[in-house]
C-alpha cells in the first residue's frame, strides 16, 4: 500500500520538527587562522579585521588560555569552531589550541554543521604556516592595554 498524502505530511512534519541528535560529518581541508571566537563574534574589541593577526595575538592567547572557544577563520570567511586537534580534545584552555593562537594553518578533518554553526574536528594540521597576518602595522595592538607601558 502506498502512503497517502496525510501520512507523507505527518512524516515530513516529524522530520522537520525533530532536532537532529548527531550531525553528519564531511571530510574537509581548510586553510585559515586560529582565532578567539568571542572577540570576533561579539565585536567587544572592535571590528573583525582588528581582532585577528599580530595586532590581537596577545589577546588571542589570553582568550585561549581563559577557555574561550577557539575557531579557525577560513580563507572562505567562515568560522569553524575547533573541537579537537590531532587527538587532543582539550577545547577549553588546552595546550595545543593555545600553541596555535594566531597561526595560519591548513587543517584536514571532519566538518559538522549544527544550528547555524560550523564545528571542526582537526585530524591533522597539514601545515602550520606560522603567524602570517601582520595587521599590527595597521591596527597597533588590540586591545590597547595588551602591551604594558615599558617601565622607565
Amino acid at each position: 500500500m502506498r502512503p497517502g498524502p496525510t501520512s507523507l505530511l505527518a512524516a515530513l512534519a516529524l522530520t522537520l520538527a525533530t532536532p537532529s541528535l548527531a550531525a553528519e560529518g564531511e571530510r574537509v581541508q581548510i586553510r585559515g587562522e586560529i582565532i578567539d571566537t568571542w572577540c570576533y563574534y561579539s565585536g567587544v574589541m572592535g571590528g573583525p579585521d582588528a581582532v585577528v593577526g599580530t595586532a590581537h595575538h596577545t589577546c588571542a592567547m589570553w582568550c585561549s588560555a581563559g577557555g574561550i572557544p577557539v575557531g579557525l577563520l577560513g580563507d572562505d570567511g567562515q568560522v569553524y569552531m575547533v573541537l579537537k586537534i590531532e587527538g587532543d580534545d582539550a577545547s577549553a584552555s588546552g595546550d595545543t589550541q593555545l600553541s596555535l593562537a594566531s597561526h595560519e594553518i591548513t587543517a584536514d578533518g571532519m566538518l559538522y554543521k549544527r544550528d547555524g554553526l560550523n564545528y571542526l574536528v582537526v585530524e591533522k594540521v597539514v601545515t602550520d604556516h606560522g603567524i602570517t597576518n601582520h595587521n599590527h602595522e595597521d591596527y597597533g595592538v588590540v586591545p590597547g592595554f595588551a602591551i604594558p607601558k615599558p617601565k622607565q
Partner: peptide, 30 residues
C-alpha cells in the same frame, strides 16, 4: 577539558556559551 553547550529545551537548538560573566577573557565551560 572540553567546551560545554546548552541544548535548549524549547527547540533542541545547541547554544554555544562562549563567555562567562567576567570581563576578563574567560570562557563558560568552567
Amino acid at each position: 577539558r572540553r567546551q560545554l553547550g546548552l541544548l535548549r529545551s524549547a527547540d533542541g537548538v545547541l547554544v554555544y556559551p562562549n563567555k562567562n560573566s567576567q570581563p576578563a577573557f574567560t570562557g563558560a565551560a568552567v
